[in-house]
Amino acid sequence: MINNILKDRPTKLFLFFCSFFVANALIAECIGGKIFSLEKLLGLPVHTFTFFGQSGLSFSLTCGVLLWPLEFVLTDIVNEYYGPKAVRRISYIAVSLIAYAFVMFYVSIHVPAAEFWLGTGVQDGVPDMQSAFNGIFGQGMWIIIGSITAFLVSQIVDVTIFHRIKKVTGEKYVWLRATGSTIVSQLVDSFIVLFIAFKIGKDWSWQLVLAICLVNYIYKFTVAILLTPLIYFIEHRIERYLGAETTAKMKAAAMGKELE
């Protein structure tokens, strides 16, 4: 029986999507502690601007945003072929494993360090390895709670909007349901994580929270638009891999319909 399951192409594809989705989410959480300059990355001069009365803003973003747009693309792909139940399942798996990872980070931070290890980074400019380790893996509890909550809520929003658009448009306008659901869910994600992590956790002003939320959303909105061709490419490759008949049946089943 297990051999038949592993030979089933839709099953193999789902396992790949699930594995990539979880790995991508976990990596994004781990690298999210670094803030980078988008302008410098693109070779542009850094200019500051003002939103909601908050001055001195620039496109300084967490490295996690490099990967999160791919999560929403993958959410739409899984939603298209496997339905909302599958999206919720892989989202719960991802959140559970992210929470597990943070528990392990906490444990690893607090186990006693070997004395010889503390100074092993001196030659690389790291005088205290324990402090460096804590700084990288010791994210604040409010940030963790905010990130996980934002991820779950935004996934639910994405799934709901995706299916409502598809019920109206049918198989047409893939770009509309994929991009439309993503740009709304990205806004929800950006606001919730900042509200929990920094409004509640750090007592930031509403002015600062909304300003940074808008900066992050402008980036996410732009990337969502730019990634639209990728969705068409992936769907084309899936149809070639599974065949037109199988993909048609999967799309119908994902919408709660059955094809004879």
Rank of each mutant, 00 (worst) to 15 (best):
residue 154 S to E: 07
residue 107 V to W: 14
residue 196 I to T: 11
residue 182 T to V: 06
residue 83 G to H: 06
residue 47 H to A: 06
residue 160 T to P: 02
residue 208 L to C: 02
residue 92 Y to E: 12
residue 109 I to F: 08
residue 21 F to K: 03
residue 221 F to R: 09
residue 153 V to Q: 03
residue 207 Q to E: 12
residue 128 D to I: 02
residue 195 F to V: 11
residue 75 T to V: 00
residue 170 G to K: 07
residue 24 N to L: 11
residue 85 K to Y: 01
residue 31 I to V: 14
residue 67 L to A: 01
residue 141 M to L: 09
residue 157 V to N: 05
residue 191 F to G: 01
residue 63 C to S: 15
residue 86 A to R: 14
residue 229 P to N: 13
residue 51 F to Q: 02
residue 234 I to R: 03
residue 52 F to S: 10
residue 110 H to Y: 15
residue 69 P to Q: 00
residue 133 F to T: 02
residue 128 D to V: 05
residue 101 A to V: 14
residue 129 M to F: 03
residue 103 V to R: 06
residue 124 D to I: 10
residue 258 E to N: 12
residue 152 L to F: 14
residue 82 Y to R: 09
residue 65 V to R: 01
residue 111 V to Q: 15
residue 174 V to T: 11
residue 88 R to A: 05
residue 122 V to L: 12
residue 25 A to V: 08
residue 95 V to Y: 09
residue 246 T to F: 01
residue 155 Q to S: 14
residue 192 I to Q: 05
residue 141 M to A: 07
residue 57 L to Y: 10
residue 220 K to T: 05
residue 193 V to R: 12
residue 119 G to H: 11
residue 176 L to T: 04
residue 227 L to D: 12
residue 87 V to E: 01
residue 220 K to V: 13
residue 18 C to P: 04
residue 121 G to D: 12
residue 18 C to D: 01
residue 71 E to K: 04
residue 211 A to N: 11
residue 150 A to F: 08
residue 160 T to H: 02
residue 78 V to S: 06
residue 191 F to R: 08
residue 9 R to K: 15
residue 103 V to K: 11
residue 113 A to C: 08
residue 54 Q to A: 07
residue 56 G to R: 07
residue 30 C to Y: 09
residue 161 I to G: 10
